[in-house]
């Protein structure tokens, strides 16, 4: 692992451990398996969704969702329905971030894919995503070298996702693993995936709970 690379088997093992810890922390990670049409093997990947309210003055998505037609008188007035839409009682504008961690056989590292959607399922443009993330995202213009987001077809679903380009992942991870060895002797880091997530996740709004480091996945 000191090369910063990860095998698929290690990836799956790490991912299972991560989900066990996540379940205990209520962090929402799940491991999904998909059988792709062109292969007998199932591909495992991690999924997490986060719904966030966005500020009212945030740029709305002008195209969605649009009402079509006139209001229809199709049901009787119901006093037991709470009319909370448009009252400011609940956030009207929310965006759902969907994160997928997928193993890249060619780079031999995990790759973070993500997308963000409005209520209607329309994708939030990348420019807007940065705006929503700006609170977490102090390093926006600092030219961090792994901050290379590009649009890519999802390797499993074939639809457009954004992803953090994996070209620097192994270098960064190798540095961390080496530094870890120096400080802690022979003890390997707890979970490659977890360490990786703590570094790359926050760039795109995916923060990792400190509690992961406090619990042991094996117990």
């Amino acid at each position: 692992m000191a090369t910063g690379l990860l095998t698929y088997e290690e990836f799956v093992r790490n991912a299972r451990d991560l989900v066990v810890m996540s379940d205990r922390l209520g962090d929402g990670w799940e491991l999904r398996h998909v059988r792709q049409t062109d292969g007998p093997e199932e591909t495992a990947f991690l999924v997490k969704r986060i719904c966030v309210a966005i500020a009212e003055e945030s740029p709305v998505d002008p195209e969605t969702p649009r009402d079509v037609g006139e209001p229809e008188n199709i049901e009787d007035e119901d006093p037991a329905t709470l009319h909370c839409r448009g009252t400011g009682k609940l956030s009207e504008k929310t965006v759902q971030f969907e994160y997928h961690v997928i193993y890249s056989p060619s780079y031999q590292v995990p790759v973070l894919f993500f997308t963000a959607t409005f209520h209607s399922g329309r994708l939030v443009p990348l420019k807007e995503i940065w705006k929503f993330l700006s609170p977490f995202h102090v390093t926006r213009d600092s030219g961090m070298e792994w901050e290379s987001v590009t649009q890519q077809e999802h390797p499993i679903f074939g639809r457009p996702f954004y992803h953090l380009h994996p070209c620097h992942t192994s270098n960064v991870m190798a540095t961390i693993l080496t530094a870890n060895k120096h400080e802690r002797g022979d003890r390997d880091i707890k979970n490659y995936l977890l360490s990786w997530l703590t570094i790359f996740g926050p760039t795109i709004g995916l923060n990792v709970l400190i509690d992961y480091l406090k619990i042991d996945s094996k117990t």
């Binding site: 969702p65 649009r66 079509v68 199709i74 049901e75 839409r85 209607s120 443009p125």
Partner: peptide, 29 residues
């Protein structure tokens, strides 16, 4: 009696429409 058609943010019973060409139209992709 049954109620349940989803209302819009003005509390009106209106269907919705979304255009997804930015994520589905191969040309725009």
């Amino acid at each position: 009696k049954v109620t349940g058609w989803e209302k819009n943010d003005k509390n009106k019973s209106v269907p919705k429409m979304v255009n997804l060409s930015s994520s589905m139209d191969p040309v725009r992709l």
